[in-house]
Nucleic acid binder design. Structure first.
Length: 377
RNA sequence: GUGCCUAUGGUGUAAUGGUUAACACUGGAGUUUGUGGCACUCCCGAUACGGGUUCGAUUCCCGUUAGGCACC
Protein backbone atom coordinates (compact mmCIF):
# COMPACT_ATOMS: atom_id res chain seq x y z
CA UNK A 1 0.00 0.00 0.00
CA UNK A 2 1.15 3.47 -0.84
CA UNK A 3 -0.30 6.78 0.34
CA UNK A 4 0.34 10.09 -1.31
CA UNK A 5 -1.05 13.45 -0.23
CA UNK A 6 -1.86 15.59 -3.24
CA UNK A 7 -2.99 18.68 -1.43
CA UNK A 8 -3.39 19.97 2.09
CA UNK A 9 -6.17 22.43 2.79
CA UNK A 10 -5.22 25.86 4.06
CA UNK A 11 -8.63 26.30 5.67
CA UNK A 12 -8.77 23.11 7.70
CA UNK A 13 -6.95 19.89 8.44
CA UNK A 14 -8.51 18.28 5.34
CA UNK A 15 -6.23 16.51 2.87
CA UNK A 16 -6.64 15.28 -0.66
CA UNK A 17 -4.79 12.06 -1.34
CA UNK A 18 -4.37 8.84 -3.25
CA UNK A 19 -4.15 5.48 -1.62
CA UNK A 20 -2.75 2.74 -3.84
CA UNK A 21 -3.14 -0.94 -3.22
CA UNK A 22 -2.39 -3.84 -5.54
CA UNK A 23 -6.10 -3.77 -6.44
CA UNK A 24 -6.35 -0.15 -7.47
CA UNK A 25 -6.50 3.36 -6.18
CA UNK A 26 -8.66 5.04 -3.58
CA UNK A 27 -9.11 8.76 -3.87
CA UNK A 28 -9.18 10.22 -0.38
CA UNK A 29 -11.09 11.42 1.51
CA UNK A 30 -13.18 8.37 0.76
CA UNK A 31 -16.27 6.72 2.10
CA UNK A 32 -15.92 2.97 2.74
CA UNK A 33 -19.17 1.03 2.34
CA UNK A 34 -19.65 -1.79 4.84
CA UNK A 35 -19.71 -5.32 3.41
CA UNK A 36 -19.72 -7.27 6.69
CA UNK A 37 -20.51 -10.65 5.15
CA UNK A 38 -18.45 -10.13 2.00
CA UNK A 39 -21.26 -8.36 0.21
CA UNK A 40 -22.99 -5.03 0.20
CA UNK A 41 -26.35 -6.40 1.24
CA UNK A 42 -28.74 -6.47 -1.73
CA UNK A 43 -26.12 -5.53 -4.35
CA UNK A 44 -23.94 -7.58 -6.65
CA UNK A 45 -20.27 -6.63 -6.73
CA UNK A 46 -20.85 -5.17 -10.21
CA UNK A 47 -23.53 -2.89 -8.81
CA UNK A 48 -21.32 -1.93 -5.89
CA UNK A 49 -18.73 -0.83 -8.43
CA UNK A 50 -21.36 1.11 -10.41
CA UNK A 51 -22.02 3.31 -7.39
CA UNK A 52 -18.37 4.40 -7.53
CA UNK A 53 -17.06 2.50 -4.51
CA UNK A 54 -13.29 2.16 -4.53
CA UNK A 55 -12.88 0.14 -1.35
CA UNK A 56 -15.13 -1.90 0.98
CA UNK A 57 -14.75 -3.15 4.53
CA UNK A 58 -15.61 -6.73 5.45
CA UNK A 59 -15.69 -8.22 8.92
CA UNK A 60 -13.24 -10.73 10.32
CA UNK A 61 -15.51 -11.94 13.09
CA UNK A 62 -18.51 -12.61 10.85
CA UNK A 63 -16.47 -14.26 8.09
CA UNK A 64 -14.60 -16.37 10.63
CA UNK A 65 -17.94 -17.72 11.91
CA UNK A 66 -19.31 -18.28 8.43
CA UNK A 67 -18.15 -19.52 6.07
CA UNK A 68 -14.76 -19.57 7.87
CA UNK A 69 -11.49 -18.22 6.48
CA UNK A 70 -10.48 -21.63 5.13
CA UNK A 71 -13.35 -21.62 2.67
CA UNK A 72 -12.52 -18.09 1.56
CA UNK A 73 -8.84 -18.86 1.20
CA UNK A 74 -9.63 -21.96 -0.84
CA UNK A 75 -11.67 -19.72 -3.13
CA UNK A 76 -8.59 -17.62 -3.79
CA UNK A 77 -9.19 -15.05 -1.07
CA UNK A 78 -11.85 -12.45 -0.44
CA UNK A 79 -11.43 -10.53 -3.71
CA UNK A 80 -11.98 -13.57 -5.88
CA UNK A 81 -14.55 -15.06 -3.56
CA UNK A 82 -16.83 -12.03 -3.84
CA UNK A 83 -15.79 -11.07 -7.37
CA UNK A 84 -14.55 -7.67 -6.22
CA UNK A 85 -11.58 -6.40 -8.19
CA UNK A 86 -11.05 -3.18 -6.24
CA UNK A 87 -9.51 -2.76 -2.82
CA UNK A 88 -10.75 -4.29 0.42
CA UNK A 89 -10.29 -3.84 4.15
CA UNK A 90 -11.22 -6.17 6.95
CA UNK A 91 -12.22 -4.98 10.37
CA UNK A 92 -10.48 -6.96 13.09
CA UNK A 93 -13.48 -8.22 15.04
CA UNK A 94 -12.60 -5.93 17.92
CA UNK A 95 -15.86 -4.08 17.62
CA UNK A 96 -17.75 -7.33 18.20
CA UNK A 97 -16.08 -7.49 21.62
CA UNK A 98 -18.22 -4.50 22.35
CA UNK A 99 -21.40 -5.22 20.42
CA UNK A 100 -21.76 -8.79 21.71
CA UNK A 101 -20.60 -7.78 25.19
CA UNK A 102 -21.46 -4.53 26.92
CA UNK A 103 -23.36 -3.28 23.87
CA UNK A 104 -25.83 -6.10 24.22
CA UNK A 105 -25.91 -5.88 28.03
CA UNK A 106 -27.03 -2.26 27.96
CA UNK A 107 -28.84 -2.28 24.64
CA UNK A 108 -26.66 0.54 23.31
CA UNK A 109 -24.68 1.43 20.25
CA UNK A 110 -21.25 2.91 20.56
CA UNK A 111 -22.72 6.38 20.74
CA UNK A 112 -24.86 7.06 23.78
CA UNK A 113 -28.33 8.49 23.15
CA UNK A 114 -29.76 8.38 26.64
CA UNK A 115 -28.11 8.43 30.00
CA UNK A 116 -27.46 5.04 31.54
CA UNK A 117 -27.19 4.89 35.30
CA UNK A 118 -25.02 1.79 35.29
CA UNK A 119 -21.40 2.73 34.84
CA UNK A 120 -18.88 0.23 33.57
CA UNK A 121 -15.84 0.38 35.82
CA UNK A 122 -12.40 -1.20 35.83
CA UNK A 123 -12.48 -5.02 36.02
CA UNK A 124 -16.18 -5.22 35.09
CA UNK A 125 -16.97 -7.98 32.58
CA UNK A 126 -19.81 -8.21 30.09
CA UNK A 127 -22.38 -10.92 30.79
CA UNK A 128 -22.00 -13.10 27.76
CA UNK A 129 -18.33 -12.75 26.80
CA UNK A 130 -15.09 -12.67 28.77
CA UNK A 131 -12.32 -10.21 28.08
CA UNK A 132 -8.84 -11.26 29.14
CA UNK A 133 -5.24 -10.22 28.58
CA UNK A 134 -4.75 -12.45 25.53
CA UNK A 135 -8.09 -11.79 23.92
CA UNK A 136 -11.78 -12.45 24.20
CA UNK A 137 -13.87 -15.59 24.75
CA UNK A 138 -17.13 -15.42 22.83
CA UNK A 139 -20.03 -17.74 22.55
CA UNK A 140 -20.75 -18.26 18.90
CA UNK A 141 -24.06 -16.61 18.02
CA UNK A 142 -24.56 -19.52 15.61
CA UNK A 143 -24.22 -22.61 17.80
CA UNK A 144 -23.21 -21.31 21.23
CA UNK A 145 -19.77 -22.88 20.94
CA UNK A 146 -16.96 -21.25 22.94
CA UNK A 147 -14.66 -19.26 20.68
CA UNK A 148 -11.52 -17.33 21.37
CA UNK A 149 -10.42 -14.30 19.42
CA UNK A 150 -7.35 -12.27 20.23
CA UNK A 151 -4.76 -10.26 18.31
CA UNK A 152 -2.91 -13.33 17.03
CA UNK A 153 -6.07 -15.08 15.93
CA UNK A 154 -7.46 -11.94 14.28
CA UNK A 155 -4.31 -11.37 12.24
CA UNK A 156 -4.15 -15.00 11.16
CA UNK A 157 -7.76 -14.87 10.01
CA UNK A 158 -7.25 -11.55 8.25
CA UNK A 159 -4.19 -12.90 6.46
CA UNK A 160 -6.22 -15.87 5.26
CA UNK A 161 -9.00 -13.56 4.08
CA UNK A 162 -6.47 -11.49 2.16
CA UNK A 163 -7.82 -7.93 2.19
CA UNK A 164 -5.44 -5.13 1.14
CA UNK A 165 -5.75 -3.33 4.45
CA UNK A 166 -6.31 -5.04 7.79
CA UNK A 167 -6.94 -3.67 11.26
CA UNK A 168 -5.37 -4.43 14.61
CA UNK A 169 -7.54 -6.22 17.14
CA UNK A 170 -8.81 -3.68 19.66
CA UNK A 171 -11.34 -3.29 22.42
CA UNK A 172 -14.10 -0.75 21.95
CA UNK A 173 -15.41 0.19 25.40
CA UNK A 174 -19.09 1.05 25.83
CA UNK A 175 -20.15 4.70 26.07
CA UNK A 176 -21.02 4.28 29.75
CA UNK A 177 -17.51 3.11 30.66
CA UNK A 178 -15.69 5.34 33.13
CA UNK A 179 -12.13 6.66 32.95
CA UNK A 180 -10.73 3.65 34.78
CA UNK A 181 -12.29 1.16 32.42
CA UNK A 182 -11.23 3.13 29.35
CA UNK A 183 -7.67 3.30 30.59
CA UNK A 184 -7.65 -0.44 31.14
CA UNK A 185 -9.19 -1.18 27.72
CA UNK A 186 -6.72 1.20 26.10
CA UNK A 187 -3.79 -0.56 27.77
CA UNK A 188 -5.08 -3.90 26.46
CA UNK A 189 -5.60 -2.43 22.99
CA UNK A 190 -2.02 -1.12 23.02
CA UNK A 191 -0.62 -4.51 24.02
CA UNK A 192 -2.67 -6.18 21.36
CA UNK A 193 -1.42 -3.64 18.80
CA UNK A 194 2.19 -4.74 19.40
CA UNK A 195 1.19 -8.39 19.16
CA UNK A 196 -0.63 -7.74 15.86
CA UNK A 197 2.47 -6.13 14.37
CA UNK A 198 4.65 -9.01 15.48
CA UNK A 199 2.20 -11.60 14.20
CA UNK A 200 1.73 -10.14 10.74
CA UNK A 201 3.78 -11.89 8.08
CA UNK A 202 2.48 -10.88 4.65
CA UNK A 203 2.52 -7.58 2.86
CA UNK A 204 -0.98 -6.44 3.75
CA UNK A 205 -1.18 -2.94 5.16
CA UNK A 206 -1.94 -2.99 8.89
CA UNK A 207 -3.74 -0.11 10.62
CA UNK A 208 -3.42 0.38 14.38
CA UNK A 209 -6.47 1.53 16.32
CA UNK A 210 -6.59 4.46 18.70
CA UNK A 211 -8.95 4.28 21.67
CA UNK A 212 -9.43 6.39 24.80
CA UNK A 213 -13.16 7.09 24.69
CA UNK A 214 -14.29 10.58 25.56
CA UNK A 215 -11.21 11.22 27.66
CA UNK A 216 -8.93 13.75 26.04
CA UNK A 217 -5.73 12.68 27.74
CA UNK A 218 -6.34 9.03 27.04
CA UNK A 219 -6.97 9.85 23.38
CA UNK A 220 -3.72 11.79 23.17
CA UNK A 221 -1.85 9.03 24.95
CA UNK A 222 -3.34 6.40 22.67
CA UNK A 223 -2.63 8.40 19.51
CA UNK A 224 0.99 8.90 20.56
CA UNK A 225 1.47 5.29 21.50
CA UNK A 226 -0.11 3.79 18.39
CA UNK A 227 1.57 6.25 16.03
CA UNK A 228 4.89 5.35 17.62
CA UNK A 229 4.52 1.83 16.27
CA UNK A 230 5.28 0.89 12.63
CA UNK A 231 1.70 0.77 11.41
CA UNK A 232 0.80 1.64 7.80
CA UNK A 233 -2.12 3.77 8.87
CA UNK A 234 -4.46 4.39 11.75
CA UNK A 235 -7.99 3.67 12.77
CA UNK A 236 -9.76 5.88 15.24
CA UNK A 237 -12.26 3.82 17.19
CA UNK A 238 -14.68 4.01 20.06
CA UNK A 239 -16.89 6.86 21.12
CA UNK A 240 -16.18 10.50 21.76
CA UNK A 241 -18.85 11.73 24.12
CA UNK A 242 -22.46 12.61 23.73
CA UNK A 243 -22.35 15.57 21.40
CA UNK A 244 -21.11 15.93 17.90
CA UNK A 245 -18.97 19.01 18.35
CA UNK A 246 -17.05 17.11 20.97
CA UNK A 247 -16.59 14.21 18.58
CA UNK A 248 -15.15 16.42 15.86
CA UNK A 249 -12.86 18.19 18.32
CA UNK A 250 -11.61 14.88 19.64
CA UNK A 251 -10.95 13.50 16.16
CA UNK A 252 -9.14 16.72 15.32
CA UNK A 253 -7.06 16.41 18.46
CA UNK A 254 -6.18 12.80 17.71
CA UNK A 255 -5.18 13.67 14.16
CA UNK A 256 -2.85 16.39 15.47
CA UNK A 257 -0.85 13.64 17.16
CA UNK A 258 -0.61 11.47 14.06
CA UNK A 259 2.06 11.64 11.34
CA UNK A 260 0.79 13.39 8.24
CA UNK A 261 2.13 10.87 5.76
CA UNK A 262 -0.07 7.97 6.85
CA UNK A 263 -3.80 7.51 6.23
CA UNK A 264 -6.36 7.87 8.99
CA UNK A 265 -9.58 5.94 9.10
CA UNK A 266 -12.43 6.97 11.39
CA UNK A 267 -14.25 3.79 12.29
CA UNK A 268 -18.01 3.61 12.06
CA UNK A 269 -18.88 7.26 11.59
CA UNK A 270 -20.83 9.04 9.40
CA UNK A 271 -24.23 10.43 9.16
CA UNK A 272 -24.32 12.83 6.21
CA UNK A 273 -23.92 15.78 8.54
CA UNK A 274 -20.82 14.24 10.13
CA UNK A 275 -18.92 13.80 6.90
CA UNK A 276 -17.72 17.32 6.16
CA UNK A 277 -16.68 18.06 9.77
CA UNK A 278 -14.66 14.87 10.14
CA UNK A 279 -12.93 15.41 6.81
CA UNK A 280 -12.07 18.94 7.93
CA UNK A 281 -10.68 17.37 11.10
CA UNK A 282 -8.20 15.43 8.97
CA UNK A 283 -9.88 12.10 8.31
CA UNK A 284 -8.99 10.29 5.04
CA UNK A 285 -11.25 7.25 5.23
CA UNK A 286 -14.41 6.43 7.12
CA UNK A 287 -16.87 3.58 7.01
CA UNK A 288 -20.46 3.62 8.10
CA UNK A 289 -23.48 1.36 7.86
CA UNK A 290 -25.84 4.30 7.57
CA UNK A 291 -26.48 4.46 3.80
CA UNK A 292 -26.97 0.69 3.49
CA UNK A 293 -28.71 0.12 6.81
CA UNK A 294 -31.13 3.01 6.33
CA UNK A 295 -31.82 1.84 2.78
CA UNK A 296 -33.11 -1.43 4.17
CA UNK A 297 -35.38 0.52 6.51
CA UNK A 298 -36.85 2.44 3.60
CA UNK A 299 -34.89 5.68 3.77
CA UNK A 300 -33.28 7.54 0.88
CA UNK A 301 -30.61 10.18 1.41
CA UNK A 302 -31.00 13.11 -0.95
CA UNK A 303 -29.50 16.57 -1.51
CA UNK A 304 -31.73 18.21 1.06
CA UNK A 305 -32.20 15.61 3.76
CA UNK A 306 -33.66 12.14 3.78
CA UNK A 307 -36.95 10.59 2.68
CA UNK A 308 -38.85 7.90 4.55
CA UNK A 309 -40.40 5.91 1.73
CA UNK A 310 -42.56 4.04 4.25
CA UNK A 311 -44.75 7.13 4.42
CA UNK A 312 -47.87 6.82 2.33
CA UNK A 313 -47.59 10.31 0.89
CA UNK A 314 -44.81 9.09 -1.43
CA UNK A 315 -47.23 6.73 -3.16
CA UNK A 316 -48.51 9.78 -5.02
CA UNK A 317 -45.08 11.25 -5.73
CA UNK A 318 -43.92 10.64 -9.28
CA UNK A 319 -40.58 12.39 -8.87
CA UNK A 320 -37.28 10.52 -8.71
CA UNK A 321 -35.74 10.09 -5.25
CA UNK A 322 -33.48 13.06 -5.96
CA UNK A 323 -33.88 15.29 -9.00
CA UNK A 324 -30.24 16.31 -8.76
CA UNK A 325 -29.00 12.72 -8.74
CA UNK A 326 -27.83 11.03 -11.93
CA UNK A 327 -27.74 7.48 -10.62
CA UNK A 328 -29.59 4.84 -12.60
CA UNK A 329 -32.28 4.51 -9.92
CA UNK A 330 -33.08 8.21 -10.11
CA UNK A 331 -33.06 8.05 -13.93
CA UNK A 332 -35.52 5.18 -14.09
CA UNK A 333 -37.74 4.91 -11.01
CA UNK A 334 -40.20 7.11 -9.14
CA UNK A 335 -40.69 7.68 -5.44
CA UNK A 336 -44.17 6.29 -5.94
CA UNK A 337 -42.88 2.96 -7.23
CA UNK A 338 -40.15 2.60 -4.62
CA UNK A 339 -42.59 3.53 -1.86
CA UNK A 340 -44.96 0.86 -3.13
CA UNK A 341 -42.16 -1.73 -3.13
CA UNK A 342 -41.13 -0.80 0.40
CA UNK A 343 -44.69 -1.05 1.66
CA UNK A 344 -45.18 -4.34 -0.14
CA UNK A 345 -41.96 -5.56 1.50
CA UNK A 346 -40.43 -6.38 -1.85
CA UNK A 347 -36.67 -6.93 -1.74
CA UNK A 348 -36.15 -4.93 -4.92
CA UNK A 349 -36.93 -1.80 -2.92
CA UNK A 350 -33.97 -2.47 -0.65
CA UNK A 351 -31.70 -2.87 -3.65
CA UNK A 352 -32.86 0.34 -5.32
CA UNK A 353 -32.45 2.35 -2.11
CA UNK A 354 -29.07 0.79 -1.29
CA UNK A 355 -27.85 1.58 -4.80
CA UNK A 356 -29.00 5.18 -4.64
CA UNK A 357 -27.78 5.80 -1.08
CA UNK A 358 -24.27 4.53 -1.83
CA UNK A 359 -24.15 6.55 -5.02
CA UNK A 360 -25.25 9.56 -3.00
CA UNK A 361 -22.63 9.07 -0.27
CA UNK A 362 -19.83 8.41 -2.73
CA UNK A 363 -20.92 11.38 -4.82
CA UNK A 364 -21.11 13.63 -1.79
CA UNK A 365 -17.55 12.78 -0.77
CA UNK A 366 -16.45 13.22 -4.38
CA UNK A 367 -17.77 16.79 -4.23
CA UNK A 368 -15.86 17.36 -1.01
CA UNK A 369 -12.67 16.19 -2.74
CA UNK A 370 -13.41 18.73 -5.48
CA UNK A 371 -13.85 21.35 -2.79
CA UNK A 372 -10.47 20.57 -1.26
CA UNK A 373 -8.89 20.61 -4.71
CA UNK A 374 -10.42 24.02 -5.46
CA UNK A 375 -9.41 25.42 -2.12
CA UNK A 376 -13.01 25.85 -0.94
CA UNK A 377 -12.76 23.43 1.96
C1' G B 1 -92.05 -14.90 3.21
C1' U B 2 -90.62 -18.30 7.64
C1' G B 3 -86.85 -20.14 10.95
C1' C B 4 -81.91 -19.99 12.93
C1' C B 5 -77.16 -17.45 13.56
C1' U B 6 -74.13 -12.99 13.71
C1' A B 7 -73.29 -7.56 14.65
C1' U B 8 -66.87 -4.69 19.06
C1' G B 9 -61.68 0.85 15.99
C1' G B 10 -60.43 1.27 8.66
C1' U B 11 -59.64 -4.56 8.60
C1' G B 12 -59.35 -9.32 11.35
C1' U B 13 -60.03 -11.06 16.19
C1' A B 14 -60.25 -10.86 22.25
C1' A B 15 -62.88 -9.95 26.73
C1' U B 16 -66.39 -8.74 30.67
C1' G B 17 -73.19 -7.61 34.66
C1' G B 18 -68.73 -3.28 37.94
C1' U B 19 -62.33 1.48 37.36
C1' U B 20 -59.01 4.03 31.55
C1' A B 21 -62.83 -2.59 26.37
C1' A B 22 -57.34 -6.15 24.87
C1' C B 23 -54.28 -7.83 20.54
C1' A B 24 -52.50 -7.89 15.36
C1' C B 25 -52.50 -5.37 10.73
C1' U B 26 -53.53 -0.57 8.58
C1' G B 27 -52.89 4.86 9.52
C1' G B 28 -49.67 8.86 12.09
C1' A B 29 -44.93 10.26 14.72
C1' G B 30 -40.06 8.84 16.19
C1' U B 31 -35.33 5.76 16.63
C1' U B 32 -31.13 3.31 13.95
C1' U B 33 -23.12 5.65 13.26
C1' G B 34 -16.24 -0.46 12.89
C1' U B 35 -24.73 -3.54 10.35
C1' G B 36 -29.32 -7.74 13.46
C1' G B 37 -32.56 -6.57 5.84
C1' C B 38 -38.11 -7.29 6.52
C1' A B 39 -36.63 -4.22 13.85
C1' C B 40 -37.89 -1.27 18.12
C1' U B 41 -40.71 2.85 20.70
C1' C B 42 -44.90 6.01 21.03
C1' C B 43 -49.73 7.82 19.24
C1' C B 44 -54.78 8.01 16.68
C1' G B 45 -58.89 4.80 16.41
C1' A B 46 -64.55 0.65 18.36
C1' U B 47 -69.08 -2.09 21.60
C1' A B 48 -74.75 -1.08 14.54
C1' C B 49 -79.48 1.82 15.92
C1' G B 50 -83.81 2.42 19.39
C1' G B 51 -86.11 0.76 23.75
C1' G B 52 -86.25 -2.23 28.37
C1' U B 53 -84.36 -5.03 33.06
C1' U B 54 -80.58 -3.30 36.68
C1' C B 55 -77.52 0.83 41.59
C1' G B 56 -74.70 -0.23 37.04
C1' A B 57 -75.46 -3.18 30.20
C1' U B 58 -70.61 -3.84 25.35
C1' U B 59 -72.47 -8.29 28.07
C1' C B 60 -79.27 -10.12 29.73
C1' C B 61 -84.33 -9.16 27.13
C1' C B 62 -87.43 -6.87 23.00
C1' G B 63 -87.69 -4.25 18.44
C1' U B 64 -85.29 -1.96 13.95
C1' U B 65 -81.53 -2.29 10.35
C1' A B 66 -77.67 -5.03 7.88
C1' G B 67 -75.18 -9.61 6.67
C1' G B 68 -74.93 -15.16 6.53
C1' C B 69 -77.30 -20.06 6.43
C1' A B 70 -81.55 -23.29 5.83
C1' C B 71 -86.56 -24.03 4.11
C1' C B 72 -90.89 -22.61 1.14
Amino acid sequence: MEFKILKKSKKSRARLGILKTSHGIIETPSFVPVATQATIKTLTSEETKEVKSQILICNTFHLHLKPGEKIIKSNGGLHKFMNWGNSLMTDSGGFQVFSLGFGRDFGVGKILKEKINDIVEKHHQPKSIRIGERGVWFKSPIDGKELFLGPKESIKIQEALGADIIFAFDECPPPNADYGYNKEAMRRTHNWAKICLKEKKGNQALFGIIQGGKFKYLRIESAKFISGLPFDGFGIGGEFGDDKKKMVKMVDLVNQQLPENKPRHLLGIGYVEDILPIIKAGVDLFDCIVPTHYARRGFAFISNGKLDLNKSLFLKDKNPLDKKCDCSVCQNYTRSYISHLIRAKEITALKLLTFHNLYFFNGYVEKIREGIKNGKI
